[in-house]
Simulated scan of single mutants.
Amino acid sequence: MKILKNIGLFVLGIFLVCSKLNVYASEIDYGADVGWLSQLEAQGYSWQDENGNTRDVLDILSDHGITAIRLRVFVNPPSSFEWTKNDGTECILGYCNTTGLLYMAERAKNKGFDIMVDFHYSDHFADPEYQDIPEQWKDASYNELVTYVYDYTYYIMNQLAQNGIYPKWVQVGNEINSGILLPYGSSGNNFQQLAGLLNSGYDAVKAVSPSSKVVTHLANGQNNATFRWFFDNFLTEYNGKTDVIGMSYYPYWIGSSFENNIDDLADNLYDMADRYGKEVMVCEVGGVESDTNGTYELLQAAIDAVGSVPESKGIGIFYWEPEGNSQALPDGYILGTTTMTGNKNLKFTSALNAFKESYDK
């Protein structure tokens, strides 16, 4: 009887742990960054559901368990919405100026999605390699840039508010490991100025939409040392303001299978929540479009990592541009989740089922 009792207690314990994880999973937002979408649509691309019917891609994403849409905004992108990187790679930016943001935000709102707005504070993509000052701001001093960040952020937030849109989250900067508005906001050379710029954006967001959670977003979510260094400086040393710590996680760009570093991501999510008392999320994740099973397993593992953060502090995970396809993009980006089913017809792979299955728990 004692053995049976112990077995029963063990099973009960496993059940409670699993139930706890499922409670966390049900509270997570499952998101998609679709910044390329309107530009791809303008080029004639369409998306089919599992039955082969052409439908609004946002509806298809909803069918796959997506609950939130992430939209980026550039200050003054080229009128062609194309950009050539330093290595000669040509890419499209998406219609991500103010007008394009408002159009997509309204569209997402009308579909019932939560919304994340991602300020790049540049005329093109910002990431650890590129944090270029917008052309209109290039002659500004640091103090002027602090004002520009506030005024621009306030303007965009106010434009959204006038359309009844109050984003659930707002990123002040995108993958800002190296800082923003370089060289003035360099994390390596002048963290105090970086904190000042980020706090200016934070204050502008809250002035328009106090309920919006401000996200501070770094790349390489598997690298705990980088995150501790950055947030020890930002939060502890220089009194930075943020509500959520966000991270990107791309095993493909790391050059390793997710099995080799998913525990590092999970540990980092836990550590950021525990060390700083902040909510945490994966703002960007992606796997190779042709490796459907591998991407599905990657997403399941990343969802589990977010959902396992104690006290429900793991709040969301966003796939970056799942609607994309390497044949549709000039840079051949291969981390979408679609296949080409015909001339400019795309269909999502079963990799996205990881979101739906987690959402349905």
Rank of each mutant, 00 (worst) to 15 (best):
75 V>P: 00
64 H>F: 13
58 L>M: 09
67 T>S: 14
76 N>S: 13
54 T>I: 15
58 L>W: 02
60 I>V: 09
47 W>V: 03
50 E>N: 14
48 Q>A: 15
59 D>T: 07
49 D>I: 05
71 L>E: 01
76 N>P: 01
74 F>L: 06
58 L>I: 03
70 R>C: 01
58 L>Y: 10
59 D>Y: 08
70 R>F: 01
76 N>V: 09
64 H>I: 01
52 G>A: 10
66 I>P: 11
49 D>H: 11
56 D>H: 08
63 D>P: 12
62 S>D: 14
59 D>P: 12
70 R>Y: 04
67 T>I: 02
53 N>V: 14
53 N>E: 15
71 L>P: 06
56 D>A: 09
72 R>D: 00
65 G>Q: 05
70 R>P: 00
71 L>V: 01
74 F>D: 00
53 N>C: 13
71 L>S: 05
74 F>W: 12
50 E>H: 11
56 D>C: 10
55 R>H: 12
68 A>W: 04
67 T>N: 13
66 I>D: 04
61 L>M: 11
56 D>P: 10
72 R>H: 07
70 R>L: 01
65 G>F: 02
52 G>E: 11
56 D>T: 05
52 G>C: 10
56 D>K: 02
68 A>Q: 08
67 T>E: 06
67 T>Y: 10
59 D>S: 14
62 S>Y: 11
57 V>W: 01
68 A>R: 11
52 G>K: 09
47 W>Y: 09
71 L>T: 00
66 I>Q: 09
60 I>R: 08
52 G>D: 09
56 D>Q: 06
56 D>S: 11
66 I>T: 09
59 D>V: 07
50 E>C: 05
65 G>S: 04
63 D>Y: 06
75 V>D: 04
70 R>T: 00
53 N>Y: 13
69 I>K: 03
48 Q>C: 14
58 L>C: 06
70 R>K: 13
63 D>M: 01
47 W>K: 05
62 S>N: 14
58 L>V: 06
50 E>Y: 08
76 N>K: 14
62 S>G: 15
51 N>D: 15
55 R>N: 14
58 L>A: 01
53 N>L: 13
69 I>C: 05
53 N>F: 13
51 N>E: 15
76 N>A: 12
59 D>M: 07
62 S>Q: 15
74 F>H: 09
57 V>S: 03
54 T>D: 13
63 D>I: 02
55 R>G: 10
47 W>Q: 04
48 Q>T: 12
52 G>R: 10
76 N>M: 11
51 N>C: 13
56 D>N: 12
70 R>D: 01
66 I>R: 04
48 Q>K: 15
73 V>Q: 01
64 H>M: 10
67 T>M: 04
56 D>Y: 07
73 V>E: 02
56 D>R: 05
55 R>F: 08
57 V>Q: 02
47 W>E: 03
59 D>F: 07
48 Q>N: 13
50 E>M: 06
61 L>R: 00
67 T>Q: 12
74 F>M: 03
50 E>R: 15
63 D>G: 11
75 V>T: 08
61 L>P: 08
50 E>W: 10
66 I>W: 04
48 Q>G: 12
75 V>N: 03
63 D>V: 03
72 R>W: 00
68 A>L: 10
63 D>L: 01
60 I>F: 03
75 V>G: 07
60 I>K: 05
76 N>F: 09
72 R>Y: 00
55 R>I: 08
56 D>E: 10
49 D>L: 11
59 D>K: 12
